[in-house]
């Protein structure tokens, strides 16, 4: 260990200060939506004379905003369910198989992380037209499930890295069927990864915008789509109120997950 006085060298002070500055750069710009959402003006800006909740009222009384929010939540839940089921089964199968073919299969499943969003959305659009899935909730759930699968398979596979392969073998040699072994030995070991994966899948779907812009028209509206259109058309402070609500929820979730981890 270095001597105690080494802790306060100019180099270490510079790195610590730099670290805090970078963290401030990451966190502070996000928080700017909070004061803006409380503005008493009808345009985006800081409050002029007093604080006002009018833009929150506008959000909570708008059928369109609430409908989009509900739509996004339901799609997110459906995506979390389908992606977790498919991704967990995949990772467990591949974990048992091992070897070259299994590694290739894992690469195939993470392709959506690497393909540019606009490119994959063009693909969705053309195929969804053929399938009659344009502007349907089914179409959005299917597209989002594909985009969420990589995250589920990565986190489930990471959880299985801690499972000793001898355990399922022991269950088998004691007479358990293959499905019972999977269900009672492997799935419990995969559970932490499944939970992380489901949360990731929900967030991927809840935030997704490019695909939705391509495969929906007017009937299907998600929250990101309404925010996107709001930013493009006129900058209305309702967006700041929505953004604040989302940031505050994110903060709460981040704090809870941080506390659980420590």
């Amino acid at each position: 260990m270095s001597a105690p006085e080494a802790r306060t060298t100019p180099f270490r002070i510079a790195m610590s200060t730099g670290g805090w500055l970078v963290a401030a750069f990451l966190a502070l710009p996000i928080l700017v939506v909070i004061p803006v959402s409380l503005t008493d003006t009808s345009y985006i800006g800081l409050p002029k004379e007093s604080l006002s909740l009018q833009h929150y009222e506008a959000y909570f009384t708008s059928a369109r905003w609430l409908g989009g929010t509900l739509g996004s939540i339901l799609v997110g839940l459906a995506v979390a369910f389908f992606a977790t089921v498919l991704g967990t089964a995949f990772s467990i199968g591949v974990w048992f198989l091992g070897g070259r073919a299994a590694t290739i299969a894992r690469w195939v499943l993470i392709v959506p992380i690497l393909v540019p969003p606009v490119v994959q959305s063009l693909g969705f659009y053309r195929f969804w037209v053929q399938l009659g899935l344009i502007d349907t909730w089914t179409g959005v759930i299917l597209a989002h499930t594909l985009l969420a699968l990589p995250y589920v398979s990565i986190s489930v596979f990471a959880a299985l890295a801690n499972l000793d392969p001898k355990l399922p073998q022991a269950a088998r040699s004691l007479g358990a069927s293959i499905w019972r072994t999977v269900w009672e030995v492997v799935v419990p070991a995969a559970r932490p990864g499944m939970i992380t994966g489901a949360v990731f899948a929900f967030i991927v779907s809840f935030d997704e915008i490019v695909g939705v812009l391509f495969i929906t028209v007017r009937r299907v509206e998600t929250l990101p789509k309404l925010i996107w259109e709001g930013i493009q058309d006129n900058i209305d402070p309702t967006i700041a109120a929505v953004a604040t609500i989302l940031v505050v929820i994110s903060l709460i979730v981040a704090v809870i997950s941080g506390l659980r981890r420590s």
């Binding site: 996000i30 994110s250 981040a254 941080g258």
Partner: peptide, 28 residues
């Protein structure tokens, strides 16, 4: 350290759309 890690991870929880909107509000 936990605080610093939390600040770095915070943006991950907030959608790219909202973060871009924040920059528009700042830089417009």
């Amino acid at each position: 350290k936990p605080l610093l890690i939390a600040l770095v991870l915070l943006p991950f929880w907030v959608s790219v759309l909202i973060r871009s909107f924040s920059w528009i509000v700042l830089l417009g």
